[in-house]
Every structure is written in C-alpha cells, then in structure tokens.
Amino acid sequence: MKKIENHTNKDEWFSRNDSFQKKLDKIHAKDLGLDVPQDYFSTSKNDILETIHAEKKSKGIPKIYNKFIWLAAAGIALIMALSIFKPYAPSGSDLQEETEIVSISAEQLIEEDMLIASLFVDESQLDSYVDQYIVEESIIDEYIEVYFFDDILNDTLLF
C-alpha cells in the first residue's frame, strides 16, 4: 500500500470532503428513498462524543480483556510463590526438579500464568469474554469467508 499524498492546496481536502457530505442526503433520498430523523447527525455527534468520554472515564478497555494485566497478576502470584518456597535448600532430587522446571518452554509458562491468573477472575466474566470475543470473531470470519467472498473463485475463473 502506498503512503498518503500531501495535498498542495491546504483547503482542498477539507472542502472536497465537506461539499461531498452535503450532497449525500439528497443522493440517498432521491435514488433510494432513504431518510434520517430530523437533526439526527447533530444528536448522533453528541452521542458519539459522550460515549467516548464515558469510555475514557472508565479507563477504556475493561481489565478482564487485557491479557497483560492477567500476566502481571500471574507474575505477582509467581513471585509470591517463589519467595515462600525459597528457604528450602536444594537436595539432589530437588536439583533434578529444578532442571526440569528450567526446561519448561516459555509458551508453557505463559499458558500456566494465564491459568493462574484466570483463578482470580469471576467465571461469569470469563464466559462473557469468550462469548464476546472468541465466538464473535469466529462468526464474523465464517460470514466473510463463506458468504461474502464465496464468488471470488468464480471471478478468477471467468477473467
């Protein structure tokens, strides 16, 4: 993809967008019979700004959805666990166990950290996360692949 171009006339970009916006209501009403409630766009603008303001107040993304917070919580839990068990001196068999622990891959550690962190989260919140993100994303992917782009192959064969 190419980088955006710099416009020489500084007003050109704004005026082009502004004049096009003004035509839109007429085009859609005339050709397609589509209408909007009176003063909809000014009301909607305020609604959008209020929603964004409210989101910012609630610190944006809910903590449950931020896996970095999960990992941080897991890290704290791990440090606490290590500090509790540290006083034990390593015996021969302990040394073998330690070697095994070191050989655990980074991926396994992250997975385990996530599992530990998930213990601190309410089950209903986890269900909500799964419903909202994992299920939604798979449905959208299916929709786009199966229904929206299903005739791309036909296009390729025809031309």
């Binding site: 967008n17 589509l34 409630p37």
Partner: peptide, 24 residues
C-alpha cells in the same frame, strides 16, 4: 481534531453503513 473528523466523515460513514445494514 476528532470533533472535526466527525464533522467531515459522520454522514459519509453513516450512508455507507446504512446501505449495508439497511435500517436507520
């Protein structure tokens, strides 16, 4: 700047969306 962005693109995106999801 975001308020200006809304002024410039609100209608364009609304009509784009409206034709896909049909109802207001």
């Amino acid at each position: 700047a975001f308020k200006t962005l809304l002024d410039l693109y609100q209608k364009r995106l609304y009509w784009h969306i409206r034709k896909i999801v049909i109802t207001h």
